[in-house]
Design a protein around this nucleic acid. Sequence first.
DNA 1: TCTGGGGTCCTAGGACCC
DNA 2: TCTGGGGTCCTAGGACCC
Length: 434
Amino acid sequence: MDVSGDAGSTGEIPGILHLDMDAFFASIEVRDDSRLQGLPVVVGGAGARGVVAAASYPARTRGIRSAMPMASARRLAPDLVIVPPRIDLYRQISARVMELLGDVVADVEQISVDEAFLDVRGARRLFGPPEQIAELLRRRIREELGLPSSVGGSVSRAVAKIASARAKPDGMLIVPAARTAEFLAPLSVSVISGVGPRAQDALARIGVRTIGQLREIPRSTLTRALGPRAPEIAALADGSDRTGLGRRTRDKSLGTERTWDEDLTDPAEVRRCITQMADDVARQLRRGGFVTRTVVLKLRAPDGATITRSSTLDQPTSSGERLREQVVSLWERERSAMRRVRLAGVRATHLEPASGTPVQSELNARAAGWQDLEAAMDRALERFGTRSLGRGSTLSAVPDGTQRSPASPTSGPGTGPTGQPGPVGPHTTDRDGR
DNA sequence: TCTGGGGTCCTAGGACCC
DNA sequence: TCTGGGGTCCTAGGACCC
């Protein structure tokens, strides 16, 4: 079916574009090392429990997909090239891509590291119809950054996203308004963003596999199968979805987690790791100019069973000491039940901008002390990298007095602008008091 | 050598208040 | 006396996305 081209009888302009970088991480690695050209390349962890974060197109033709366990990928391609991720570099390039988009189109909504929606209806006078704008953007990204991208266009963002996926690699597909239904009908419901394995199962049970079939189903049946999300998905299926671009929303949570190749069995070791994670999260908060009110500890047992335990402070904070206290007290409640730990993580939620948070009036001397010290450490870390500093004994708030190993190399030099250390509330306590 | 790490959003139950 | 209902906050879990 040729869906690109004529404007369609409704006359509505397919002015919502979705731009998606092709195999983003893998494309960057291939660009930077010409020997990788044409080879099955994946970016990801090479360890026993590693998974594929991104796969080059030669790797994809062998059946390799992102999120696949690395062991399976190796079986599919014994000559697989595994490249460790360079997240900071990807982030820098991502920022550059978004800048390029912003130079052409005023209304850009970044939705992940490698994709964005653009509303180009206001840019037509200057740059022409959506097709022309899409080609301009793709050409600039290729010329300036040496990277391939794909663009989908439609009257709705959901359909634009589906179109960009079908334009890959290195292509463009604009769906005219009048041909939206025709375009969607044969596609699997799984292409809809928000329809994952569970929703697919639920739909399959009522005999629905394609978007065309979805459109024929009575609304009441759909609601029984999908629950409250039914109207949204139905609107997409019949082409009436007109969700506009949202303004980029502020970060809502931030955290770090780690899966070990071999399960941790020593509670002291777990505690050491999560206190280090708490420090890392606190540093990210300060760098981003945030404070948090709720700290979440996540633990996964060897059988995959996952629990989360959270604790809400009565004053927001970005202090590593506060976060460590919370996380350790949450761990103390669970350690007897969790004998072996496959994964542990620390996350801060209910983020607020640090500047908008009232500083507590009575800073005691010790609190002011650690606040200054943590800010000084942040500055040193920004300049010299994480390995340059371990926490000294003056700040050893780890209750069991365990020696802390040097911090993990999660934030190398040049990871971002120095953040303003935010005001912190030093008198926060664990609300549930355990 | 069977499943990572970063997130968002939603739901449900209990506590607590009025 | 023996019991409603709404609102909000907190906690926990799960589906889903890249």
